[in-house]
Design a protein around this nucleic acid. Structure first.
Length: 326
DNA sequence: AGCCAGGTAATCC
DNA sequence: GGATTACATGGC
C-alpha cells in the first residue's frame, strides 16, 4: 500500500523566457502526443509536475505571465538553497526557456509542410522534465508495443516502485531513482509490472545511471554512448539525446512518427527510415529534431493522446490515481 | 488465429 | 556486414 506524501509550499521561482521569438507556454509544457504517465497534469492555463532531486520529492505548479514562467515549488523534505538553484536550472533547461529558435524558424519558413505547424505551434520548445534515466525508461516502455500497453507498464512501475504525492490540489506519481530500483529483479519487472522482454533491460538502465552522472556524458557522442547500455538501440538512444540532452539535430524514428514524416514531407503513407532521415537533415540541417517535434505535435494537436483536464475534473483525476496503489 | 504495436540483440549467411 | 528472427504481451 503506497502512502501519499503531502508536499508543502517551499518556494516560488520566476523563470524568464529569453530571446525575441514567440513563446507558446501551453504547448511547450503540455505535449499533445505525450501519453498519460501520471507524473503530470494540465489544464488550459496551468500544469503540475513532479521532479526527483535525489531523495527529495518535488511538486511544481507552473503558470505563465507574459514571458515569465512562474513555478511554485512544493516539497516534504529539507529544502535548501542548493535545491532552489538546481530546480531553477532544471526547469529552465527542461522546457528550453533560454533556447533560440530563430535558426530553426528561418529554415522552416521555406518548407511548405511546416507552414501550418509553425502557425499553430510557433514558439514551442522540446519538453523533457525527465532526466536521462527517466526518459530512457519512457523510451524503453515505448519499444515495439502499443501506447495503451506503454501506459499500463508505466502505471505498474510507478505504482509499485515510485512515489505518490499530493500538492497544490493535485495527486501525482513521482519517479523512482536508479538506487531505489537497484534491488528489484528482472523477474519482478516481468511478472509484477508486466514489462515482457523489456524487464531484462531495466536493471542495466538503473546500473548505468547509478554509475554515470550527466557530467560524465558531456562531450561524448551520446547516441553512440547510450547504446552501450543493453536494451538501448538507435531509437532509445536518439530519444535520450534529443529530449534529455536537447540535441536539436537528433530525433528518434519509429514506426509511428515515420508515417507522420512520410505523409507531410514526401506525400506518401510511409517510407524507409533512411529516406526520411536524409530528407529531414537536408531540409533542416542541424535542426531535424526540432522539425520532428513540430510535425508530430501538430499532427496530434486536434486529437491529443492525453487531453487537457477541465479544472472541475481534477478531483476525479486525484481519486483515480490514489485508487491505483501497490 | 494471426498480426501488429511509438525496437533490440542474437544469429545467420 | 547486411538480412532475418526471437523476444512478451495485449488488443483488434
Amino acid at each position: 500500500m503506497t502512502t501519499i506524501r503531502h508536499l508543502d509550499h517551499a518556494d516560488t521561482l520566476h523563470l524568464p523566457v529569453l530571446g525575441d521569438g514567440p513563446f507558446n507556454f501551453r504547448h511547450t509544457v503540455w505535449k499533445p502526443s505525450h501519453y498519460d504517465t501520471g507524473l503530470e497534469a494540465h489544464t488550459t492555463d496551468r500544469s503540475w509536475r513532479t521532479i526527483r532531486i535525489g531523495d527529495l520529492a518535488v511538486g511544481v505548479r507552473l503558470t505563465c505571465e507574459d514571458r515569465t514562467v512562474i513555478a511554485d515549488i512544493y516539497t516534504d523534505g529539507d529544502y535548501k538553497p542548493a535545491h532552489r538553484d538546481e530546480l531553477r536550472t532544471r526547469l529552465t533547461t527542461s522546457y528550453g526557456l533560454t533556447e533560440d529558435l530563430t535558426a530553426f524558424t528561418a529554415l522552416a519558413e521555406r518548407v511548405p509542410a511546416m507552414r501550418e505547424p509553425l502557425a499553430a505551434l510557433g514558439g514551442i520548445r522540446q519538453s523533457c522534465p525527465e532526466d536521462h534515466f527517466e526518459i530512457s525508461v519512457v523510451a524503453l516502455l515505448l519499444q515495439n508495443t502499443t501506447v495503451s500497453r506503454t501506459t499500463a507498464m508505466t502505471r505498474n512501475l510507478l505504482a509499485h516502485h515510485g512515489l505518490l504525492v499530493h500538492f497544490a490540489g493535485v495527486t501525482l506519481r513521482a519517479w523512482f531513482t536508479p538506487a531505489e530500483i537497484a534491488h528489484v529483479t528482472a523477474e519482478c519487472f516481468k511478472e509484477q509490472d508486466r514489462l515482457g522482454y523489456r524487464a531484462k533491460s531495466l536493471p542495466y538502465f538503473a546500473a548505468f545511471f547509478r554509475d554515470h552522472t550527466a557530467e560524465d556524458l558531456l562531450g561524448a557522442n551520446l547516441v553512440e554512448r547510450f547504446q552501450e547500455i543493453k536494451g538501448v538501440g538507435p531509437y532509445t538512444a536518439a530519444v535520450m539525446a534529443s529530449h534529455a540532452s536537447r540535441d536539436p539535430s537528433v530525433f528518434g524514428i519509429d514506426v509511428w512518427n515515420r508515417k507522420i514524416f512520410a505523409r507531410s514531407l514526401l506525400g506518401a503513407p510511409d517510407a524507409d527510415a533512411e529516406v526520411i532521415t536524409q530528407r529531414m537533415n537536408e531540409l533542416f540541417p542541424g535542426h531535424a529534431g526540432t522539425a520532428a517535434l513540430y510535425l508530430v505535435e501538430h499532427d496530434y494537436l486536434a486529437r491529443p493522446v492525453a487531453p487537457l483536464l477541465h479544472p472541475a475534473g481534477i478531483s476525479s483525476w486525484n481519486q483515480a490515481l490514489e485508487a491505483t496503489t501497490a
